[in-house]
Nucleic acid binder design. Structure first.
Lengths: 145, 145
DNA sequence: AGTCGCTGGTTGTAATTGCAACCAGATTGA
DNA sequence: TCAATCTGGTTGCAATTACAACCAGCGACT
């Protein structure tokens, strides 16, 4: 390599990965303990819920949740099988699909938030000061463009 | 939920996940473009390399790389198949395995770092100031205990 | 209209991950 | 010493993810 990264960069990077993994694992674990589905289900339910009119094109959803399309396609299959969402044909683009929530989907979203939100509070918020939160946010934002 | 987390916590948490995912994906992608194996291979090679005497018990390795044992077991199978590392019997504990690198493993480690280090520099270090790095590090450390 | 390239979405199949059960060796403790 | 329990590691099998190929509809250009 021409120019290797500085020691502190590598350390921060490694910490970032480590924090992510442990936080994710704790979240998944607490969801499972409550007999709830994995976090990815929550992500898509939430994204649909927050979309204007609670409707969203599948490819937009894919961008939001950062999942490749082939992956999202099957994830939606599973959610649909559990009657948590619908796929409607899109009138403007006959290739496309529009995703909407079912009442069951909305209910599950709430139930998952009860657990997931708790994890965020205890494992994340509780360990940081206001200042930490703000500066963390600002720094992370820089990394997203 | 009794007490929901604050808005800023949720936002920071979401950003953390997002940053992780994009960073990881970019890293994997650049490795693949260079015809190199996935990041997880690098992680274990590095951890073995950095261990005292370049030898490490399998279960310790598992803790370092944050992988469940059944997962690590098969990952090591793959690396061993490529002659990147050895599993020796552990003299002190006859159940245990000790992992060491082969010359090929050390070579691959280097080749992967050439690519991976570059990604860290360009996608991470380059976007942050010294100050950012330090405060990020400090904040993330709080989240790990 | 007719062709060409691009985009949204699905699917077959292989690779990886997750779970639970298992085995063998260590440790504890009566 | 012997059982009971725990720990390090592997394995069978199911679920998920990755890759590549595909299909149909859109847009642009002729």
């Amino acid at each position: 390599m021409k120019i290797p990264p500085k020691k502190e960069s590598v350390a921060a990077w490694a910490h970032l990965f480590r924090v992510y993994k442990t936080l994710l694992e704790q979240s998944e674990q607490e969801l499972k303990r409550a007999d709830l589905p994995p976090l990815s289900w929550y992500d898509v339910l939430l994204e649909v819920h927050d979309a204007p009119g609670q409707r969203i094109r599948q490819f937009e959803l894919g961008q939001k949740v950062l999942l490749p399309k082939y992956n999202l396609s099957r994830l939606l299959d599973r959610l649909q099988n559990e009657a948590l969402l619908n796929r409607e044909a899109c009138p403007e683009d006959r290739r496309g699909a529009v995703i909407t929530l079912t009442p069951g989907g909305r209910r599950l979203l709430k139930r998952m938030w009860a657990v997931y939100g708790g994890t965020i509070r205890e494992r994340f918020e509780a360990r940081l000061t206001e200042r930490d939160l703000v500066s963390l946010e600002r720094t992370l934002a820089k990394l997203l463009d």
